[in-house]
C-alpha cells in the first residue's frame, strides 16, 4: 500500500479527499470557536500545523521504539511539548494574537486532528511521508479555517483580514461572530461540499461506465445476454 500512494497524493489528500474539517469532521472545537475573523483562523491553523508537523516527524522517527501499551501517553507528551512551545512563543512575540485566541492555543493538545494523524498515519509511516501528510492536513485545516473565518468576518464585521469589503450601509450580522454563526456557516459549508463530492462521485461513475462500454463492442453484449 505504501508505495502505491505518491508523495504528492499524500499531501493533496489532506486538502480535499480527506480534509480534516470538511471530510473527517475533526478539530471542531477550534474550528467553531476561533473563526470570528480570518486572521484568527489563519493563526490557529498555522499553530496547529506547526504542532502537527513536528509531532508527526518525532513520532514517526521513533515509532519503532515506543511500546504499544504506552503509545498514546507518549504521543500526548510529545504533542503537549510542542503546544506549550507554541503557546509560550506566541505569548512572548505576538501578545495580541495570543490574547484573541485565548485558551484555544493550549487546547490544541486535545485537537483530534493531531492525535488522529499520529495514531492513523505517523505510527505506521516513514518520517518523510508523515511530515508530508501532516503538511497536507495542516493545509486542509488552514483552508477550512480561512474560509470559515473570512465568511464570518465579512458578514459579521464587513471586513476580511481587516480590510473593509462591504459598504458602510451594510449592517453587520452580529450573529455571524457569535457561536450560532459558526455552527450555521459550518453546517451550510459542509452541506455544500458534500453536495459537490456527491456530484463528483456521480460523474466519476458515469465516466467509468462510459469507459467500460467503450471497451466492449455490440457483439459482446449479445454474447453476455445469451449466457
Amino acid at each position: 500500500m505504501k508505495n502505491k500512494v505518491t508523495i504528492i497524493k499524500e499531501y493533496t489528500k489532506g486538502i480535499w479527499q480527506s480534509n480534516p474539517v470538511f471530510k473527517q469532521i475533526l478539530g471542531m472545537c477550534p474550528t467553531l470557536a476561533v473563526t470570528v475573523s480570518a486572521i484568527n483562523g489563519i493563526a490557529m491553523a498555522l499553530a496547529t500545523t506547526f504542532v502537527l508537523v513536528f509531532s508527526s516527524f518525532i513520532i514517526s522517527s521513533v515509532r519503532k521504539l515506543i511500546p504499544t501499551q504506552v503509545r498514546i501517553a507518549s504521543y500526548i507528551v510529545v504533542i503537549a511539548t510542542f503546544v506549550t512551545i507554541v503557546d509560550l512563543v506566541m505569548k512572548a512575540q505576538f501578545p495580541e494574537l495570543s490574547k484573541s485566541l485565548g485558551p484555544y492555543i493550549p487546547l490544541i493538545v486535545v485537537n483530534c486532528i493531531i492525535l488522529g494523524r499520529q495514531e492513523a498515519f505517523s505510527s505506521k509511516n516513514t518520517p518523510l511521508r508523515s511530515v508530508v501528510d501532516a503538511l497536507g492536513m495542516g493545509s486542509g485545516f488552514l483552508i477550512a479555517l480561512f474560509m470559515l473565518g473570512s465568511i464570518r468576518e465579512l458578514l459579521g464585521s464587513r471586513t476580511i483580514l481587516g480590510f473593509q469589503l462591504l459598504p458602510d450601509f451594510y449592517e453587520p450580522w452580529l450573529v455571524m461572530i457569535l457561536p450560532a454563526g459558526a455552527f450555521l456557516t459550518l453546517g451550510l459549508m459542509l452541506a455544500f461540499f458534500n453536495n459537490l463530492s456527491l456530484h463528483k462521485k456521480k460523474s466519476d461513475n458515469d465516466k467509468l461506465i462510459a469507459k467500460y462500454l467503450k471497451t466492449k463492442t455490440a457483439a459482446d453484449f449479445v454474447i453476455e445476454e445469451n449466457k
Binding site: 511539548t81 506549550t84 512551545i85 509560550l88 512563543v89 505569548k91 512572548a92 512575540q93 501578545p95
Partner: peptide, 14 residues
C-alpha cells in the same frame, strides 16, 4: 528540558 529552556527565554518577555 526543552520546555524549561524555552520558558526561560519567554517568561521575561511575557
Amino acid at each position: 528540558g526543552l520546555l524549561s529552556q524555552i520558558s526561560e527565554w519567554a517568561e521575561p518577555k511575557i
